[in-house]
């Protein structure tokens, strides 16, 4: 995806697949483009693939940014302008 929201791996499955938790939503993705991913790791996901693994500190920092964006959405009027994304 365009936005780099960290997704946490919650389950490894056969065929280089895994289940991740992305912003509270669980989905199955492919791990075929990244190496050495374990349960608990954070990955960035795009169109069903993990793009890369990120360290927990970076994931925490990034999740905080997206939490702030979520709060901003509640505070500011939504003018429907997509260029503010």
């Amino acid at each position: 995806m365009c936005l780099a929201i960290p997704a946490q791996v919650v389950e490894l499955r056969e065929g280089d697949n895994a289940v991740v938790d992305l912003a509270g939503v669980r989905k199955e993705i492919s791990l075929s483009l990244v190496e050495d991913v374990a349960v608990g790791d954070y990955v960035i996901v795009h169109v069903g693939y993990a793009l890369n693994k990120i360290d927990p500190d970076e994931a925490e920092k990034t999740l905080k940014l997206f939490a702030d964006i979520g709060e901003l959405r509640g505070q500011l009027p939504d003018d429907g302008d997509p260029t503010r994304h």
Partner: peptide, 8 residues
């Protein structure tokens, strides 16, 4: 639908 990231 797009999150308002640039507002940050």
């Amino acid at each position: 639908e797009r999150p308002p990231a640039a507002r940050l």
